[in-house]
Nucleic acid binder design. Structure first.
Lengths: 198, 198
DNA sequence: AAAATGCACTAACGGTTGTTAGTAAAATTC
DNA sequence: GAATTTTACTAACAACCGTTAGTGCATTTT
């Protein structure tokens, strides 16, 4: 009857949520059983419910924690007058790349498994995502007005930005091809060069 | 006891496979039940087994049909001496975009649900995918030798090519922003401009 | 018309799902 | 040290899973 061995200063709930992110990423939300998760944590399935309310709650925690993190960056960028629009777009792209490199579990679950959120969380999540796209579009439109960006439509550029970084998932499985730093510089150069006015 | 109403000249198995692709895309492979699929087809679950061997077989059919289609294009391109490497890369990108626009169900299932393939199909699929990446890399390396492509590493560029088009999934849900043709031209311009030697 | 095949049905199987109830031991608070 | 809270356990639940067996009607082939 040993307790969950949670390291340092994280709560047991956080420990479980991390394990859940790992499993949801590997096996998918639906194919991950509470008995799988319990095994990963080192406990019986029923014991998990002393710390969490439901399987659904775990998914909510992962998706919204991750999404809020990206909204927070936009909050700061929108108030920053010291950067050009192009610099802001580059900052957003780098932020996405770095999170895909550092937290692939969270990013994959947020991207691929968020559809299993139940209402009203699902609607909230999708609305937030739409808003996030529009806010980046607005930054790009500002750059077009100031002549810094090329004639590519902002909507298309945002879709590309948010999607191209998903290739990092594939990179994670075969790391030896290229370092994380080189990958970031390549992707940033490629995206920004294609976007810049010439 | 009405039969499955399959249109024109497709077999009943193809009719079922199409419905499966639609459901696997919407709900995911694991969360899609045979009773869901049966309802979509207009029949009882057990009746499906007069036409298919198993749920797993449906996934195999979708994933390999789609993957082979892309390999076939590369087979032709590799033998084509009338195009520059840059033109070949553009052709590959356009091919991906057009398939994401026309067959989003197949593309999404092949990308997101292929992990549920069972052995030995899973290993075969992943090896084919690795080989596909290397073949595109080889085309890009050729372009670098001939001075047509910029200093971006081929591996990074391939990851970007294969991933950026996944944004089309999001576009499908909110079509009014931009037409399919404009989206294609924007993405191609963005990707190729970023890749071209200047 | 007879025989053979195709196809959808009902019923059921063994296994798995997320979750709850009840209990006891361990850790914490008093 | 006693009282209280936290936490892990076993057992069990109703629902659902993919799939098989067996039956009989409908269609096609002979």
């Amino acid at each position: 009857m040993a307790r969950i061995q949670n390291n340092k200063n994280e709560t047991r709930k956080e420990f479980i949520t991390s394990a859940a992110a790992r499993l949801f990423r590997e096996k998918g939300f639906s194919a991950t059983g509470m008995r799988d998760l319990a095994g990963e944590v080192g406990v019986e399935a029923a014991s998990l419910y002393n710390h969490i309310r439901s399987k659904a709650e775990l998914l909510q925690e992962i998706c919204f924690r991750t999404a809020n993190q990206f909204s927070a960056q936009l909050n700061e960028l929108e108030l920053d007058n010291s950067q050009t629009s192009l610099q802001k777009v580059e900052a957003i792209l780098r932020h996405h790349i770095q999170w895909w490199v550092a937290k692939p579990d969270d990013m994959l679950v947020t991207n691929n498994e968020s559809k299993y959120l139940q209402e009203p969380y699902l609607s909230t999540f999708m609305n937030e995502r739409r808003l996030y796209v529009r806010r980046i579009e607005a930054i790009m439109e500002d750059g077009i007005r100031k002549g810094q960006l090329s004639g590519i439509q902002p909507y298309s550029a945002v879709l590309t930005l948010l999607s191209m970084v998903r290739g990092i998932e594939f990179w994670h499985r075969t790391k030896k091809n290229i370092s994380a730093e080189a990958l970031e510089e390549n992707m940033v150069k490629h995206f920004i060069d294609g976007l810049r006015q010439r």
